[in-house]
Simulated scan of single mutants.
Amino acid sequence: MSRRNTARTRAPRRLATLGALAALTTIAGLAAAPAAQAGPMPGADKHKPAICKRLPAIDTRLDKAIERLNGAAAVKGSIAHLQERIATADRLDRPAVKTYLNDRLTTRQRLLPELRQRKTDLANVKTWCDARQPAAGK
């Protein structure tokens, strides 16, 4: 019976300890935030090449997404395919489906310029990576 009582008394202490650790972590993070905004920290450059390593994969992913959105009506996920589905829903007199698909169409139409902008931004990052000296030991 004493074993049960100790287990019950330990749980609130553990929760209190975890709460205190969470509070300290939050306070430490807030205290360190202004220092991070002050300027580049020495040694921060060693983390920058990671994005340079991911560039080909990101570029491929963006190309696939843009190609899919610009695809013909037979390509699932394309804007033309969604427009065809909206026309079908309208023809079959399904207003709720048509409204839902119209909202999806609006989202996809907004996404296309954003993806093109990301592609441009990625080209700028590639230029930066090409101009950057490789980090020592990597």
Rank of each mutant, 00 (worst) to 15 (best):
V75C: 00
T127Y: 13
A65S: 08
I58H: 01
L62T: 01
E84F: 04
T60N: 13
K126H: 10
R85Q: 06
V97W: 11
Y100A: 10
R108P: 01
L111I: 10
E84Q: 09
N124R: 10
E67C: 09
T99R: 12
Q109G: 12
R118I: 12
T60A: 12
C129E: 02
Q117K: 13
D103I: 10
L105K: 04
L62I: 02
Q83M: 07
T127K: 04
I66K: 00
R116P: 08
R68W: 00
S78N: 01
E84G: 09
E114H: 01
P134Y: 03
A87M: 09
D63Y: 04
Q133A: 04
Q117V: 13
R91D: 14
L55Y: 03
A57D: 10
P95D: 04
N70A: 12
R94P: 01
T99V: 12
A74E: 08
E67A: 11
R110F: 06
A123Q: 14
D121M: 13
A80G: 05
L105F: 06
L115G: 02
A57E: 15
V75Q: 02
L105C: 05
C129V: 02
T127N: 11
S78P: 04
Q109L: 13
A72K: 15
R132D: 05
D130F: 02
L112Q: 07
P56T: 03
A89N: 02
V125G: 01
A123H: 15
G71V: 05
R68E: 01
N124G: 05
L105Q: 07
L122R: 03
A80F: 06
R118Q: 14
D130Y: 03
N124V: 08
Y100D: 14
D90E: 14
P113R: 03
D90Q: 12
A123C: 12
K98Q: 10
T88G: 12
T60Y: 13
A96G: 13
Q133P: 01
Y100M: 09
L82H: 00
Y100Q: 15
A72D: 09
A123V: 07
S78T: 00
A87I: 04
A131F: 07
T106V: 04
D59W: 03
V97I: 15
L122A: 07
Q83C: 03
N124C: 15
S78L: 01
D93R: 15
K119A: 14
T107L: 04
L122P: 01
A74Q: 00
C129R: 07
A131C: 11
E114D: 15
D90C: 10
T99A: 13
D121G: 13
A87D: 13
A135H: 01
W128F: 07
R85M: 14
A131H: 12
D121P: 14
Y100E: 11
L105P: 00
P95H: 06
A74S: 11
P113D: 03
T106Q: 09
A65K: 10
T60S: 15
D121V: 12
P113S: 15
N124P: 12
T120D: 14
I86C: 00
W128K: 05
R91W: 08
T107V: 11
K64F: 14
T127A: 09
R91Q: 10
R94S: 10
D130H: 04
D103L: 13
A74D: 11
L101R: 00
R118W: 12
D59M: 11
L55W: 03
D90T: 10
Q83W: 03
N102L: 09
V125C: 04
K119C: 14
